[in-house]
Amino acid sequence: MNLALFDLDHTLIPLDSDYRWTQFFIERCPADEQAALHAMNDKLMADYHAGRLDPNESLAFLIGLLARKPREVLDAWHGEYMQAVILPAIKPQARALVEQHRAAGDRLALVTATNSFVTAPIARAFGFEVLIATEPELAYERGFTGRWVGTPSFKEGKITRVQQWLAQEGLALEHFARSHFYSDSINDVPLLERVTDPVATNPSPALEAVARERGWTIVRLFDDQEIH
């Protein structure tokens, strides 16, 4: 059995699920708050793409928004978000890539920095049984607290979280003859360096430069081009 790990945003879907969910959420906030919230969302996205994102600042904002509404409201909004934003964005070639590894009998996991409230329904849409995501703290009597628990699944944190998951299964990365990780982001270089088959998928310019220097496979999933 081999291992296949997948990033989500701009890797399996051609958008950022966290950014787009936050936009969706903000549009349902009071009008006098929206400009400042959109500005913060845009700043965090720019920081992420520049490789300078402060995860504590990002999570305090993004997960903090979840604490503003009861869970039943968030769940209803997320259902609308899936129908309006996510499901139309899931392309056949992305599903085919996942299914290729599933058909080969590989162990699969979706590994994303975006929190599990946003990404769990997306993982289910792709048929993933394992989701490794940043975990928002949940107080069952009143919804989310605005805090997070455990190690955020970001940069080196993705290695930690993958290792924790495998250890629970009595496994380690080294137990797999081949391990794949598909990602678009320069932020994922730490985990890309740990697998046997790193695949720069729809890569950002920064990641493409690294991939070309190191001879990694480059896949352009959404324009039907592949460069090796």
Rank of each mutant, 00 (worst) to 15 (best):
F25M: 00
L138E: 06
P14N: 02
S183N: 02
I132F: 10
A104I: 05
Q23P: 06
A67C: 02
S185T: 03
H180V: 13
L12R: 13
M45C: 11
T112E: 03
K155I: 13
W148H: 07
I26G: 02
E137M: 11
A36H: 04
H175N: 11
V219D: 13
E174I: 04
N115G: 00
K91L: 15
R178G: 11
E72M: 09
E33F: 07
V130M: 01
T160N: 11
L166P: 06
C29K: 00
F117L: 01
D75I: 10
L53E: 05
E135T: 05
V195P: 04
M45T: 13
Q93N: 02
I122Q: 04
A46Q: 14
L65W: 04
L53K: 06
G64S: 05
T151D: 11
L53C: 02
C29N: 01
A123E: 03
Y182R: 07
E27F: 00
F176Q: 10
L87R: 15
S185M: 02
A31N: 08
Q225G: 13
P205D: 11
L12S: 09
G79Y: 12
Y140Q: 13
A103V: 07
L171I: 09
A103E: 15
H101C: 01
N41C: 00
A133F: 07
F176H: 08
R68Y: 13
T112W: 02
N56M: 14
D224C: 14
P190V: 08
L192C: 00
A89C: 12
Q225M: 14
G105L: 13
R212A: 15
L53I: 00
Y81K: 06
D16I: 02
V118M: 01
A50N: 12
R107M: 07
E208D: 10
